[in-house]
Amino acid sequence: MNDSLDALLAKYGADADRPVYDQPAAFTAFVRGGGNVNLYERLSEQLAAGYDEAQPESLLDIGCGDGLALVPALESAGHVPSRIDLVEPSAALLDAATKQLADVNTEVHAWQQPAQEFFARLGDRHWDRAQATFSLQSVPIHDRVSVLKALREHTDVLTIAEFDVPVQVEGTPEQVQSLVSRYERGIAEYGDDAQLVAQGFLLPVLLGQVDPNVARTNWEQPAASWVDQLTEAGFTEIDVEPLADYWWAPAVLITAA
């Protein structure tokens, strides 16, 4: 294994067999700390602006997590959709998101399943707007275009927040070194929570990217590749705009119709 990766694992330790999203405390500490504070503030602002401009009556949130992007957006928006559907494979995160929406004046439906399973049993339901905030990267590459095609069929407008990651050849020493150096920058932002965030979330994700014996949880790609896949799925109006700087890679907001 790469020497710099060995050093990172030795410093923080990692349980490679630990399911990433089965540790809500680590994930919560991660998304509510470090550079994520500014990132999610910017994201919620942009989502709220979209609700106010388009005035959707129905909203689908794919991979809503615990509602960190969605709930503040709804609280600050002048317009709230009358129906919101939440899709999230983690029971703990979905429950947290649902509870936060209890006081929002809207009809909420929660679905605990991956996007692939949700769309396979969907039927003819349609939404005015859909969003996926840092969640579609968790859909394996071989399933991604089919999920995007389903979103094209069942929604009018899709908003995606993702990272414009650099183009690299997987498995090369250069790619591993890039991953390790970026993870080190990210972990350093968490102070007293660094050990929790590293062991419970960041390092299991990292190992999934470099160790074939560890379950992989995300398949990121440059913004240009997202545009290519959205085009293949049938979207014709695609806009990419900067969202925020971030330790991992620049965050972008992609709107497709």
Rank of each mutant, 00 (worst) to 15 (best):
S44D: 11
T217Q: 06
P72V: 03
A150F: 09
Q23H: 08
A188L: 06
P173K: 09
W248N: 04
A194F: 05
D95P: 02
D193S: 13
D192V: 13
D3Q: 05
I62H: 05
D143K: 07
W248M: 09
A54W: 11
V205S: 04
P222R: 08
R144G: 08
Q229I: 00
V227N: 00
T217Y: 08
H79E: 05
Q112Y: 12
D61V: 11
R185I: 14
D124Q: 10
D211W: 00
P72D: 01
G50W: 06
R125M: 07
F118N: 04
L196Y: 07
L148T: 10
R185Q: 15
I141P: 00
L203D: 03
T106Y: 11
E117M: 11
A194G: 05
S135I: 04
Q112A: 14
W219P: 00
D6E: 15
V37D: 04
D15F: 00
N36S: 01
V31C: 03
S146G: 10
L122N: 03
L151T: 13
T172V: 09
E174H: 05
R42E: 13
N2C: 03
G50F: 04
I84Q: 10
A251T: 09
K99D: 03
P250D: 01
G33K: 08
K11E: 09
G78N: 12
G191F: 09
I187Q: 04
E117F: 06
P24M: 14
L94F: 10
A120Y: 08
A150V: 12
V108P: 08
A251P: 10
Q131L: 14
R18F: 04
A16T: 06
G33D: 03
G123R: 10
A54T: 07
I84M: 10
V20E: 03
T28C: 06
F27N: 01
E75P: 00
K99P: 00
T106G: 07
S58C: 05
N213L: 02
S44V: 07
R32S: 07
L206Q: 04
A97R: 08
I141E: 08
V104D: 04
N213H: 01
Y51I: 05
E153W: 13
Q195G: 05
I62R: 02
E45G: 15
F235V: 01
N36R: 02
S181L: 13
A49I: 11
V157Y: 14
S90L: 11
A92P: 02
D156N: 12
A224P: 02
L86A: 01
F27R: 01
I160H: 01
Q199S: 00
G191P: 05
L243F: 06
D15G: 01
V31G: 02
A102F: 13
R121Q: 10
S146H: 12
A130E: 07
V180Y: 09
Y190F: 13
E107D: 13
Q55I: 02
L202F: 06
S181D: 15
D17N: 02
D15A: 02
L93C: 06
V167Q: 09
G65N: 03
E237C: 04
T172Q: 10
